[in-house]
Simulated assay, not measured.
Amino acid sequence: MAFNNRGGNSRGGGFRSNNGPREMHKAICADCKQETEVPFKPSGDRPVYCRECFQNHRPKRY
């Protein structure tokens, strides 16, 4: 029998627990240059996009 090690979350991911709001970090969008907040600390070696610009950079799903 296989055990689900996701804490009851069957949607995938599973490595984040629900123990409060996510820490957000300020960043500047690489496309539109507007300030945005992201749920990770930007390291500076990869571009960061706001929600709207990120949608333009996602690969198309078929």
Score class of each variant (00 low, 15 high):
Arg6Leu: 07
Lys60Gln: 11
Arg58Ile: 04
Gly13Arg: 03
Asn18Gln: 10
Pro21Ser: 14
Gln34Gly: 04
Gln55Tyr: 11
Lys33Met: 11
Asn19Val: 02
Lys41Glu: 15
Gly20Asn: 02
Asp31Tyr: 00
Gly13Thr: 00
Phe54Met: 03
Gly7His: 06
Pro39Thr: 09
Cys53Tyr: 05
Gly20Ile: 04
Pro42Trp: 09
Asn56Pro: 00
Glu52Pro: 10
Val48Gly: 04
Ser43Glu: 14
Cys50Met: 11
Asn5Val: 06
Ser10Gln: 11
Arg58Cys: 07
Met24Gly: 01
Ala27His: 06
Pro21Lys: 13
Lys41Asp: 12
Gly7Ala: 03
Cys29Leu: 09
Glu37Ala: 10
Cys32Ile: 09
Cys32Leu: 07
Lys41Tyr: 05
His57Phe: 01
Lys26Val: 05
Pro59Ile: 10
Phe40Cys: 01
Asn9Ala: 10
Ser10Leu: 12
Met24Glu: 11
Phe54Val: 00
Tyr62Arg: 14
Val48Gln: 02
Arg58Ala: 11
Asp45Lys: 15
Cys50Gly: 08
Gly8Pro: 01
Gln34Val: 13
Pro39Leu: 09
Arg11Phe: 12
Glu23Asp: 04
Pro39Tyr: 06
Ser43Trp: 06
Cys53Asn: 10
Cys29Met: 07
Pro42Lys: 05
Ser10Glu: 07
Tyr49Ala: 05
Met1Arg: 13
Pro47Ile: 03
Gln34Phe: 01
Thr36Val: 09
Cys53His: 12
Phe54Ala: 13
Pro39Val: 06
Lys26Ser: 13
Ala2Lys: 11
Asn19Ile: 05
Pro59Val: 09
Glu23Met: 06
Ser17Asn: 09
Pro47Phe: 01
Lys33Thr: 12
Arg51Met: 03
Ser10Gly: 07
Arg58Gly: 00
Thr36Gln: 08
His25Ile: 02
Tyr49Leu: 14
Gly13Ser: 07
Lys33Gln: 15
Pro47Ser: 10
Lys26His: 02
Pro42Asn: 07
Gly20Met: 05
Asn19Pro: 00
Phe3Leu: 10
Gly7Tyr: 00
Arg6Phe: 09
Thr36Ser: 13
Cys29Glu: 03
Lys41Ser: 12
Arg58Trp: 00
Cys32Val: 07
Tyr62Thr: 11
Arg11Cys: 01
Gly20Leu: 03
Met24Trp: 07
Arg46Thr: 12
Phe40Glu: 01
Glu37Thr: 13
Asn5Thr: 08
Gly7Leu: 05
Asn4Met: 05
Thr36Ile: 09
Val48Tyr: 05
Phe54Trp: 11
Arg51Lys: 15
Arg61Tyr: 08
Gly14Cys: 07
Ala2Trp: 08
Asn56Gln: 14
Met24Arg: 12
Pro59Cys: 01
Asp45His: 14
Ala30Ser: 15
Lys41Pro: 00
Pro39Cys: 10
Asn9Val: 04
Ala30Thr: 04
His25Leu: 01
Met24Ala: 03
